[in-house]
Design a protein around this nucleic acid. Structure first.
Length: 404
RNA sequence: GGGGGGAUACCAAAGUGGCCAACUGGGGCAGACUGUAAAUCUGUUGGCGUAAGCCUUCGUAGGUUCGAAUCCUGCUCCCCCCA
């Protein structure tokens, strides 16, 4: 395996990057690696707290993938031990620690989803419980002596909590140490993280130095803004696009991002080439509509393939733009000659959660049968042999009723 | 160790004996509009019922009362101040 020239590697590495600390050292490491034909060890630690991955997670995983494609060694650390501490980063309160069972369960789903992005054959997956779990109290005391309290409470999240007289548990101070110890143990050359991870990543450098290792390079990626256009993408804000979601949802949700986010999505979560990226700036400004459709298509294709993306695009055009019932709507059969209340049909098909909700929707004009709004909760449907009704409930729920 | 405050629907937060299924904001959902599942405007937001109405819900278990989210008692949890 031969490595690309350093400047070409650097261009790929720097795509979307917020900060590389320090960049000159990275260049040196890349040069050395190329000269000696020895891959760099690139580390990414993940907390298996929330196992469902979304595009926000994909930003950093994709960066790791890029390192893999450049021929470097990707090490994915499952924070089995650290998850039991709980990362205090950005938290305004102590996180509830997970049990070992929850951790291993989450880790499994995490890995299976992460493999959609990473090169499976080349990814080294380790669990930091394997080395952190066996450290002695004395080991931890020694490790702790590398950092001062002053340094810890410089951190924004801690100082805020401290000023507001909110509790900071002592064990939370140990989190960055644990993460840094991972770097020492793995002798990592580079560690990836979000901008909010800067402190934790820098501690890795300190600990490596204390262990007489060459300190790692810290590479920070931005936090992806969610579909609401303001907060970072997160499950708890419900502004996320899950990589495991159905193609139709990925496509539709991608289209719902504000226009000024289109570029950064292309840059951070899509696989378009760097050359294409340069053209896109102009294209987005001139034609945001089609650019966003292209974005939605690209993202959907990455997780559902070309055919899946095409189907999702058609589905979107049919249901949202033309407001038609899609071809793949579930079909419900009713005996010819029977007359059934529409509300019961909707409830039985579980298109709503309660009769109250159905009634509400009907009154608000959210229910239509063959393009005709039905607002009477007592409306009935009469089935004859071969009769067919296209039922639309709200914006996104459909069914085809057929008399047999 | 001492003193004080609190727990209300998805979240935040009013309500302090009947007019409370519970103000208001956020979120969600729907309609209009739109290139869009964005923005904006409007409506809506416990369950059953065509409806009248009934049932369940205000940390938890009891009690007072014709009647309680509101008063009393025990319990659980959270927070603040002082030491």
């Amino acid at each position: 395996m031969s490595f690309l020239p350093v400047d070409e590697q650097l261009a790929i590495i720097k795509r979307g990057t917020v900060e590389i600390v320090p960049e000159e050292e990275l260049i040196k490491k890349l040069k050395k690696s190329r000269k000696e034909n020895k891959p760099l060890r690139v580390k990414l630690g993940v907390d298996p707290t929330r196992p469902d991955l979304h595009l926000g997670h994909s930003v950093i995983l994709r960066k790791l993938r890029q390192f893999q494609d450049l021929g470097h060694e990707a090490i994915l650390i499952i924070g089995g031990f650290t998850a039991m501490i709980g990362d205090p980063t950005g938290q305004n309160k102590t996180r509830p620690p997970l049990t070992p069972e929850e951790v291993s369960e989450n880790a499994e789903t995490y890995i299976s989803q992460a493999k959609k992005i990473l090169d499976q054959s080349k990814t080294v997956i380790v669990n930091n419980n394997d080395w952190l779990g066996s450290m002695s109290f004395m080991d931890i005391v020694k490790l702790s002596s590398n950092l001062t309290v002053a340094r810890m409470i410089e951190r924004d999240d801690f100082s805020k909590r401290f000023e507001n007289s909110e509790p900071i548990s002592l064990h939370e101070f140990l989190y960055p140490l644990a993460q840094g110890q991972d770097s020492v143990h793995l002798k990592s050359d580079i560690e990836l993280g979000g901008t909010d991870q800067k402190f934790n990543l820098l501690v890795g450098r300190d600990l490596q130095r204390a262990d007489n290792q060459a300190p790692q390079i810290c590479l920070m990626m931005p936090l992806l803004v969610g579909t609401d256009g303001s907060k970072k993408m997160s499950k708890s804000y419900d502004n996320y696009i899950g990589i495991d979601e159905p193609a139709n949802d990925i496509y539709g949700k991608s289209l719902s991002i504000p226009d000024d986010l289109i570029y950064s999505y292309f840059e951070l979560v899509s696989d378009v080439s760097i050359e294409k990226l340069a053209e896109l700036k102009d294209q987005i400004r001139k034609d945001p509509r089609n650019s966003k459709h292209e974005l939605a298509f690209t993202i959907t294709r990455m997780y559902h393939g070309e055919a899946g993306a095409k189907a999702a695009r058609e589905h979107f055009e049919q249901t949202v733009i033309n407001k038609d019932v899609p071809d793949d709507a579930p079909e419900l059969e009713y005996a010819a000659g029977s007359t059934i209340r529409l509300m019961d049909i909707i409830s039985d098909a579980e298109l709503t959660q309660s009769n109250g909700e159905t009634k509400r929707l009907m009154k608000q004009g959210g229910v239509s049968l063959n393009d005709e709004k039905i607002s009477d909760p007592n409306a009935e449907v009469e089935f004859l042999k071969g009769s067919q009704f296209d039922l639309k409930v709200g914006k996104r729920k459909f069914a085809r009723l057929i008399g047999v």
